[in-house]
Design a protein around this nucleic acid. Structure first.
Lengths: 98, 98
DNA sequence: CTGTTGCATGAAGACCTCTACATGTTTGTA
DNA sequence: TACAAACATGTAGAGGTCTTCATGCAACAG
C-alpha cells in the first residue's frame, strides 16, 4: 500500500498524472508536456502501469496513455485537496510542541 | 505537494498514522505498537509534524501525539480505499499493452 | 545537584530511487 | 530488406531516504 501511494510521492509522476487527467496523451506528448526525456517518462509510466494507475494502448507506432479509470482521477483530486489544506494549516505549528 | 504525499509513501509512517488514527499515543507507545526504535519513531514524527499531519503535546515527561485533525483521518481513509481498489484492479493488466 | 526516564537530534552507513545514456523492439515506409 | 520513428528497457551514477548509534535536552525524584 505504501508502494501504491508512493506513486504520488514524486514530482515527475504527479506531473504526468495531472497531464493525463486532462486528456490521454502519447509518450512523446507527455515527455514534452512535463519536460522530461522520453526514457524517463517511459520508466515512470512503467511504474504507473504496474500500479494500475494508467493504461496504455498502441495506435500504430505510438502508445497513448490514459488514467486507468475515474477512480484515479478522484484520487488525484482528493490528494490535491488535502495537500492544499495541509499546506495552509502546517504553516509554522511545526515546532510549537504545544 | 509531492513532499506532502510522500508522508504516506512509507510503511513506517503509514503504520504510525494508522495507530494514531485509533487514538493518541506517546512516543514510546508508538514505538512499541509499530515495532520500531524510539529514535526512528521520533525522526518520522518530526517529519509528520512538519507536514502538519500530526500534533504533539507534552504531558510531564512524555509527549502525546495525535492526528492533526479530522482531515488527516479522512485522507488516510481515502488512501486506504483507493489503494485497495487499485490493488484489485491492477492485478495483471500491467503488461497487456492493450 | 545528581540520577533517571522520555523524547529529540546529529551523524553515518545501507538501501532505494530517479534520471541520462545506450541499446533493443515494434511498427510503418520505401 | 534497409531505414526511420516511437517506445521500452538495461545499466550506471548521482542524490535522497530510512534506520541505528550516540548524544543532547527537558522533566521529575530524591
Amino acid at each position: 500500500m505504501a508502494t501504491t501511494l508512493q506513486a504520488l510521492a514524486t514530482h515527475s509522476r504527479l506531473l504526468i498524472l495531472s497531464r493525463l487527467r486532462e486528456s490521454p496523451a502519447t509518450v512523446s506528448q507527455l515527455a514534452e508536456a512535463v519536460e522530461m526525456e522520453q526514457s524517463a517518462v517511459s520508466h515512470q509510466l512503467r511504474m504507473l502501469r504496474h500500479l494500475g494507475l494508467v493504461q496504455g494502448r498502441r495506435s500504430g507506432r505510438s502508445v497513448t496513455y490514459a488514467l486507468h479509470d475515474n477512480h484515479v482521477a478522484q484520487l488525484l483530486d482528493e490528494a490535491v485537496f488535502h495537500a492544499e489544506h495541509l499546506r495552509l494549516g502546517a504553516r509554522d505549528q511545526a515546532d510549537e510542541t504545544a
